[in-house]
Amino acid sequence: MTAPGSPERQRAHEALVQEERSLRNTPGGYWVAAADPAAASQALTGTESASRVQGAALLADGAARLVTTFHATDWQGYMTLLRHGGPEEVLRQVREAEESDPDLSRWPRSKQYDDATTAYIHQACC
């Protein structure tokens, strides 16, 4: 892994951005409504009885890093952490992991910090 700010890292980042852009909002790629609101038509949807749902979370990709990038837990563990520690604890752990890898070498990623918004709702009682 090359050092942040180095010419090699800049070239690798530019290649990554180019590849991501070629896949964004295309069949077989991934969909980002912020880039094109029409992408919302590609959303996977479904319904579930509210009585069967114990909790739900909406996450920015930076908040999901605890699972997707840092592999500190799985999705079930993430939801348990939300239930017991709330979004504050999840975000504290995300920031702790980001700070522990300032040169981006342990967990390769395009930037040290990312937005980490979390909304969590849970069923308060039976």
Rank of each mutant, 00 (worst) to 15 (best):
M1W: 12
T2M: 09
A3F: 15
A3N: 10
P4S: 12
G5N: 11
G5K: 11
S6V: 09
P7M: 14
E8W: 09
E8D: 12
R9L: 15
Q10S: 15
Q10V: 14
R11T: 15
A12R: 15
A12Q: 06
H13Q: 14
E14L: 09
E14Q: 14
L16Q: 14
L16M: 15
V17C: 08
V17K: 13
V17S: 12
E19N: 08
E19K: 06
E19Q: 11
E19C: 14
E20Q: 10
S22G: 12
L23K: 10
L23Y: 11
N25D: 14
T26L: 09
G28H: 07
G28Q: 04
G28A: 13
G29R: 10
G29N: 09
G29E: 07
Y30S: 09
Y30G: 12
W31R: 04
W31L: 07
V32S: 13
A34M: 09
D36L: 03
D36G: 05
D36A: 05
A39F: 10
A39Q: 08
A39Y: 02
S41P: 00
S41I: 01
S41Y: 06
L44W: 06
G46W: 00
E48W: 01
S49W: 00
A50W: 04
S51V: 01
R52N: 10
Q54G: 05
G55T: 03
A57W: 08
A57G: 03
L58T: 05
L58N: 00
L58Q: 07
A60S: 13
D61W: 01
G62P: 04
G62A: 12
A63T: 02
R65I: 03
L66I: 10
L66H: 06
V67N: 00
T68H: 02
T69P: 02
T69D: 06
T69I: 08
F70N: 07
F70S: 03
F70H: 04
D74R: 08
Q76Y: 03
Q76A: 03
G77L: 05
Y78P: 00
T80D: 15
L81Y: 13
L82H: 05
L82M: 05
R83M: 06
H84D: 08
G86D: 11
P87C: 07
P87L: 08
E88V: 05
E89H: 08
L91F: 01
Q93V: 07
V94D: 03
R95L: 14
R95P: 01
R95S: 04
E96M: 03
E98F: 10
E98G: 04
E99C: 08
S100L: 12
D101T: 15
D103H: 13
D103I: 04
L104K: 06
L104G: 10
R106L: 12
R106S: 11
W107C: 13
W107L: 15
W107P: 04
W107V: 12
P108G: 03
P108V: 15
P108Y: 07
R109H: 06
S110A: 12
S110F: 04
K111Q: 08
D115I: 06
D115L: 01
T117E: 02
T117H: 13
T118D: 14
A119R: 05
A119M: 08
Y120M: 13
I121L: 14
I121K: 01
A124H: 14
A124R: 11
C125D: 07
C126W: 11
C126E: 06
